[in-house]
Computed example of a mutant assay.
Amino acid sequence: MNEVLEKSTILVVDDSSDNLSLISGLLKDLYRLKVANNGEKAIKIAQADKKPDLILLDVMMPGLSGYEVCQALKADPSTRDIPIIFLTAMTGADDEKKGFELGGSDYITKPISPPIVLARVKTQLQNKAAADFLRDQNAYLEKEVSERTKEVMAIQDVTILSMASLAETRDSDTGNHIRRTQYYVLALANSLQAHPRFSEYLTERNVRMLFKSAPLHDIGKVGIPDRILLKPGKLDPDEFEIMKTHTTLGRDALANAEKSLGIDVEFLKMAKEIAYSHQEKWDGSGYPEGIGGDDIPISARLMAVADVYDALISRRIYKDGMPHEKACGIILEGGGSHFDPDMVDAFMKIHEEFKEIAQRYADGDSDLEQKVKYIGQAKT
């Protein structure tokens, strides 16, 4: 600590050359010194790149007073942490009180006692060194936490997309389906944030969680047999019953993953809701539970609109993609039966944004050709 203090720089501010000489003579063998004979010069020196570690400041000076200098330095983020010791002939209690109220660290009256000045200077420098160390440590820790958080989030995102892509490789849906639905959900959630029915739920944090969770909506399809999942035509009733189990399979897979961690994972709560309930319908005619209305989680209702829209416009092996306008008509018609009517109203206001997302993440012919090849191999 003594080595640190010996390297400290002290700015002495006084309009009296005699006082500057006196204080400089007292401190010059222990510290590096800078001097200023007026407030304006003191501020300029304090704001320079090489800032002092401590300021000894006279109060009564022509031009800017010591109080005004202190006030200016404490208002500047670059100098507000420099401790200031007032060194003045003003001995009144109100004067001393004002000095502390303006941010002074200490108040010494003239005539000075050299041992007292040396002791108080050392104390303030030690306090500043400790404060600087803590600030540096806090800044380091904040940076480390930020970097680790980014790393964890990146690993989390890669894991989610990998899991979602695994499901997609077994499905006859086009490759960019998970990316499109992810952005559809984001757009629809953003458009509903100010809606009185949804504003409490659709916080910025929850919207981010929705975006993160959306790709897992069909993760349960991993557990559906190829003969059903890859069938190029309409499923018969028995096959459809098996296909419907993908919602429960997805929810249970995520729940088991969460259980193995031994903690509740926030984004997996939404992911479980979406995987399990995105096939429910507003009128209660969906699956797996046949619930309706507000009993369906908001996350799942958002995904229902996104998932159906993308299914309608996307080309499949067994069908061509539907024009955007026709798909919008079907979504509009489904308001109050298949979909939450307020969500349909929001969709219709931003349907061009859905169209733009679909075009941005469109699948090429090669994607479909790969699916055809994969299905052909699965059947042999």
Rank of each mutant, 00 (worst) to 15 (best):
L210K: 01
Y201I: 00
A214L: 06
D226Y: 11
A187D: 08
L230S: 05
D238Y: 07
S191Q: 15
D218K: 10
A187V: 08
I224P: 00
V185M: 10
D238F: 06
S213K: 03
H195T: 09
K212S: 05
Y201N: 00
A189V: 04
V207L: 05
R205S: 05
A189M: 09
L229D: 02
P237T: 07
R227C: 07
R208Q: 09
A194Y: 10
P232L: 10
P237D: 13
P232K: 10
I224Q: 02
A214N: 04
D218F: 02
K212P: 00
P225G: 08
L230K: 12
S191G: 10
S191N: 14
P225W: 08
L192T: 01
A194N: 15
R208Y: 00
V185R: 00
A187I: 07
K231H: 14
T203A: 07
M209F: 01
P215M: 12
A187W: 01
E200N: 13
N190Q: 15
P215H: 06
S199R: 15
L230V: 08
P225Y: 09
K212G: 01
L186W: 03
F240P: 04
E200T: 09
V222N: 10
P215A: 14
A194R: 11
D238S: 13
M209W: 03
A214Q: 06
E204T: 11
L192W: 00
D218I: 11
H195E: 13
D238N: 13
F198Y: 15
R205C: 01
L235P: 08
T203N: 12
D226N: 14
V222I: 15
F240E: 15
V222Y: 06
L230I: 09
A194L: 14
R205A: 03
A214V: 04
A189I: 02
K231V: 05
F211Q: 10
E239Q: 15
Y201E: 00
K231E: 10
A194G: 12
Q193V: 05
D236V: 07
S213P: 04
K221Y: 03
P215T: 11
L186V: 08
G223A: 15
Q193E: 13
P225A: 09
A214C: 10
L210A: 03
L235H: 08
R227D: 07
L235G: 08
V185G: 02
N206Y: 03
H217C: 07
K234L: 06
F198M: 07
K234R: 11
P232D: 12
R227N: 10
Q193N: 11
S213N: 09
K221F: 01
I228F: 03
N190I: 05
